[in-house]
Simulated assay, not measured.
Amino acid sequence: MTPPILETKRLRARPFTSDDLAELVSLHRNPTVNRYLQPTNVAWDVATVKQRLARFIETQELLGFSKWHLSTHDGEFVGRAGFSLYEKTAEIEMGYTLHEHFWNKGLGSEIAQALVEWFFENTYYSHLLAFAHPDNHASKKVMKRAGFEFRETLEVDGMPCEFYQVLSPSCQKLAVPA
């Protein structure tokens, strides 16, 4: 088994492998889980999930980070969380998607805060993005708890998204409050 890259009080994050396809399919089989990931809240087919999984694995090899397999310490699959390249601006975006039965347990906030810390301890980037559909109040609350501040509203893949960003600790020291 691949060792974890990141651990929190209740969660472990490790790079995806091709063996994780069934778990990722089970996550995205639920239209409710997908409702803010695309303009239509439909279950993803296996081909779509395979494509995403291949991208996660490739990105990990290229950048040293990606979206990661998220599980409890007991090994139960929780979802995915980590980073990807937002190609329109060449910025790094943090994201997380959890199985519905793990919602409202504080796991989103737990992993988001840990991801922010990991990112700035292990990369040289000046800031990190996160975005959510305007109606995804739970996700926006998680981002704010992790230190993100609203930046702008843009359209992503035909869907409105509110963009948030958090500065690295060294950039935060240089920032002048408005």
Rank of each mutant, 00 (worst) to 15 (best):
V46G: 03
N41D: 15
H137W: 13
L27N: 04
R55V: 11
A81T: 03
L115D: 00
P160F: 10
K105G: 05
S26E: 09
E76H: 15
I111L: 03
I57T: 10
Y86N: 01
G106M: 04
V156K: 01
V116G: 00
R14S: 08
H137A: 14
L98Y: 03
P31F: 09
G147T: 10
F131I: 03
I111H: 04
A22C: 07
A146C: 07
K67Q: 14
E87Q: 09
E91L: 12
E149I: 15
N104K: 14
M143H: 12
S139K: 06
Q172H: 13
K88G: 06
N30E: 11
T32Y: 14
A22P: 01
A138K: 08
A54V: 09
Q172Y: 03
T89P: 00
D157Y: 12
I5W: 14
G108W: 06
R12I: 02
L107S: 03
I57G: 07
F102I: 02
V42Y: 03
Q113I: 08
D20Y: 08
L27K: 05
T153I: 10
G95I: 00
S109K: 07
F119L: 06
S126P: 10
V116N: 00
R10D: 15
P3H: 11
V142Y: 06
A130I: 06
E23L: 12
S109L: 02
N122K: 06
I92R: 01
D45Q: 12
A90L: 11
P134C: 03
N30H: 13
G64W: 04
E93K: 02
A138L: 03
S126E: 15
L129S: 04
K88I: 02
P31L: 10
L27H: 07
N104W: 11
K105N: 10
S139A: 09
V116M: 02
T32F: 11
E117S: 14
L21I: 10
E93L: 05
W103R: 00
F102E: 01
V156N: 04
A175C: 08
K140Q: 12
S168C: 05
K144G: 10
T153W: 02
N136F: 05
M1Q: 14
E117Q: 13
G158M: 08
N136K: 01
E7R: 15
E91K: 08
G147C: 08
A130N: 10
T48K: 15
E149Y: 14
Y96D: 00
I111W: 09
F65L: 05
S109Q: 08
E91P: 00
R14F: 06
E100R: 12
E93G: 02
L98H: 04
A132R: 09
R29C: 12
V42D: 07
